[in-house]
Amino acid sequence: MELTVTGTNAITSPFLHAWDWRVALYLFLGGMAAGLAVMSSILRLKNAGKSAEGESASFWGPLWVPIILSFGMLFIFWDLDRKLNVYWLYLTFKPFSPMSWGSWGLLLFFPVCALNALVTMPGEYRHWLRFDVLRTLVDRLQPHKRLLAILNFVFGIFVGLYTGVLLSAFVARPFWHSALLPLLCLVSALTAGAAFMAIIAKRKAVKLFFTKVNVSIVIAELIVMVLFSIGLATSQGGAVMPSFSFILEYLLYGMAIALVAKLLLVTDERSDALPDRAVLLMQVSAAMVLAGGLMFRISLVYAGQLSHLV
């Protein structure tokens, strides 16, 4: 068929390209912050907090959550074409708009993760708190440390899912319009969070724990991705499949698993006797998982816009 169109808009023709790398980065950083919130809460709640003792990641993990989230939000703010109107997001609640849920969700998540970071702050860093009001707040919240960790976990799951719901709500874009997408984004967020924890953890046993967690979630992610791809191949979303695949992410994740495969045989999590080479493998595999997660978000944002309902 020969098609001539008079009156096309560059932003929608021949394909939609409303969102670019800024949205992809927002989704990646938002997902990583969510995953990190979940993983740092797991460290805090596991073994009644004993696993977190003496581990610097139990503080740095929660502290990175609001920082990474801020950068993510900065990118989505950057993408808005009418930035000065941003306050309207918080004067409205639209129950059928995922973006509205996300705006409000992030507004609630941010103080929770920031407070969680403050209460996990060890004594030697307390001098960072310049204002008395902050020190008083931290003291008052100390008895609620566990509750904050649980809230952080719950919001982490919510935001991790949201990064997928945001895209899956668009019936017009068959590539995104899948009920599996929120799940896929959640597991991607959790892998990024676990990888980040594995990188910043000081103790080898904690590194090993998050590496093992990561491998389990990466395997789950690969399964969900296969199911997602089957869904695409059997729907209109499959139309963009020839020009798009998750091959690079499969490769990165596959290599990351292969790198740490031997370490999975180490069962004693209390062991800090792992050789330096094993630590290096864990660091490299975690970095590859983060790179895979970024690739996934970029591919997702661009491929979805290539697909069109026919």
Partner: peptide
Amino acid sequence: KYRCVGCKACLAACPYDARYI
């Protein structure tokens, strides 16, 4: 127009590609 934040969700949502910025 005074409420539009330019997030482009409507562009992605429209199956007819009827919108532009």
